[in-house]
């Protein structure tokens, strides 16, 4: 995609993707196969205590519910087996620091893969970072980002989670976040992400990625699916609603998160339309925000 000039006037006139230069024809071409647009939100009020400490037993239960709901399995073990077979090599891709993915969640995913899907420990690796050789060696990727706003990309959760795979993260900052979707189409990456699992236990809705406790809150949730754009779209809705609640009026993300709609319309990675997303809500309902 070229670096066409986008101005704030474009947003007053048209949609984000159109501002970024998308053509509906190319979008239709990219949508070669039907998109999965099922997104699951599982929340438990008691998963965090007032000191933000994670209750691992509750988190395990949430994780089991999430995997069953995403895969449609009757048991968590069936769900994990649908995500990864014993012969697979699974790369976990968490947010490593600055509002990182809770280590408890990473541990539970790894132990679930071992105990419920039967993968040996040596076939589960941390694939986050610039080393594409590790990514290339994996047959399955599990995206494990933490939910946060980002001052350079608007939202810095699912699509941005693979930014280090590009080897040049600065090339995707500011309005260039519109191109984040292309990283998901790298040959080492494309088609390998079998689960997008967002840590929304204690998200950040402004000033990310540096932690700012004024804008962090206990959402106490996991948000998951197999369509990265649909999951990101739900995340964006939650962040947007939370920001409105804080300010009592619309408080748009800036720069605008062009990457979400562009991932759909330009790169065909999934759906960014809430109308096309089937949302399953499990557990705690207070301030669900979506």
């Amino acid at each position: 995609m070229n670096d066409r000039l986008i101005t704030r006037r474009d947003f007053a006139r048209t949609s984000l993707a159109a501002a970024a230069g998308a053509s509906l024809t190319s979008a239709a071409t990219l949508r070669a196969k039907p998109r999965s647009s099922r997104v699951v939100i599982v929340r438990e009020e008691a998963v965090l205590d007032t000191a933000h400490k994670v209750n691992k037993a509750i988190l395990q239960k949430m994780l089991d519910q999430t995997v069953m709901a995403v895969t449609g399995g009757n048991a968590a073990a069936d769900g994990w087996k649908a995500i990864a077979a014993v012969k697979d090599k699974v790369g976990l891709v968490p947010t490593p620091h600055l509002n990182p993915t809770h280590p408890e969640l990473i541990e539970l995913v790894a132990s679930s893969l071992q105990n419920q899907a039967g993968l040996p420990a040596e076939r589960i690796v941390n694939a986050q970072g610039r080393n594409l050789e590790i990514v290339k060696s994996c047959t399955v990727l599990i995206a494990l980002p933490a939910l946060k706003a980002h001052w350079l990309t608007g939202i810095g959760t699912v699509l941005k989670n693979y930014i280090m795979f590009s080897g040049n993260p600065q090339a995707y900052h500011d309005s260039r976040n519109v191109k984040l979707g292309e990283i998901w189409k790298l040959p080492e990456v494309e088609g390998k992400t079998k689960l997008v699992l967002v840590d929304a236990l204690y998200p950040l809705c402004d000033k990310g990625p540096q932690p700012d406790p004024r804008y962090k809150w206990h959402y106490n949730g996991l948000i998951a699916g197999t369509d990265p754009v649909a999951v990101e779209t739900v995340c964006l809705n939650i962040i947007t609603k939370k920001r409105e609640l804080i300010k009592g009026e619309p408080w748009p993300l800036t720069p605008p998160p062009l990457c979400v709609e562009a991932a759909d319309k330009l790169y065909g990675l999934g759906t960014s339309s809430m109308d096309e997303i089937s949302l399953e809500r499990i557990g705690w309902r207070k301030e669900l925000l979506v």
């Binding site: 000039l5 704030r8 800036t254 720069p255």
Partner: peptide, 16 residues
Amino acid sequence: SHLVLNSIFYLASQNI
């Protein structure tokens, strides 16, 4: 910087 400007008032994708 235009990056900082864009974070408080989104103007343009390039440093116009």
